[in-house]
């Protein structure tokens, strides 16, 4: 979008537009909102951003977000350290946690292998994962990367690395969403589910 606003306004719109999921129209709306609300509200938002950025770092062990040396899951003594669920992003932990089914530890790769974007294994927290497998006595690695090309490539890469370590390596199953109707399932998912059918 062409610069049609005065310097500081345009600068704000441009900065907001750089955020993920914020298009030019949304950036403009947020900018106008910020300019309209009381200065103390804006100051609070600004401080919150700066403080969050200052206080939050990566967990030294699993590379989830943490406010200290270790994240909440790594500090939790009740969790099973022998099983490690490997995810692409910290937000994926939240998704797995919502199931209340998993009580092991996590490892965040901070991305997936994507040569088009110049992301190779060396940009991911893979060395760190391998070190953990040796140090922490992990016996099972659950590869919970996304079921797309990049996620599958990353899972495959990790599976190859883990093979000589003689640990159990598993991958999340793909299939039909529970509670949904068969007629609403898309053909691809239904096709995969047919392929992965089980005997009863």
């Amino acid at each position: 979008m062409a610069s049609v606003y005065e310097g500081p306004i345009q600068a704000l719109i441009d900065e907001l537009g750089r955020l993920p999921g914020v298009g030019p129209k949304s950036a403009q709306r947020i900018a106008f909102h910020l300019l309209k609300i009381p200065p103390e509200d804006v100051a609070r938002l600004a401080t919150t951003i700066v403080e969050a950025k200052r206080q939050v770092t990566w967990c030294r062990r699993c590379f989830n977000f943490a406010t200290g040396d270790l994240c909440t899951y790594c500090l939790d003594e009740r969790r099973d350290r022998t099983v490690c669920c490997v995810v692409e992003e910290a937000r994926d932990i939240v998704a797995v946690e919502r199931t209340h089914e998993f009580h092991g530890s996590y490892h965040v790769l901070q991305g997936a292998i994507a040569p088009i974007e110049g992301v190779g294994p060396e940009q991911l927290r893979i060395k760190e994962l391998l070190a953990r497998i040796g140090d922490e006595g992990i016996t099972e690695v659950i590869l919970a990367t996304n079921p797309n090309i990049e996620g599958e490539a990353t899972a495959m890469y990790l599976a190859r690395l883990c093979k000589p370590l003689e640990i159990r390596v598993t991958r999340l199953a793909s299939g039909l969403p529970v509670g949904g109707d068969l007629e609403y399932a898309d053909e691809i998912t239904l096709g995969r589910a047919l392929e992965g059918r089980r005997d009863l």
Binding site: P115, I149, M156
Partner: peptide
């Protein structure tokens, strides 16, 4: 090299 092998497979 390992990454290439993964993409061979894919």
């Amino acid at each position: 090299q390992h990454t290439l092998e993964v993409f061979d497979e894919q």
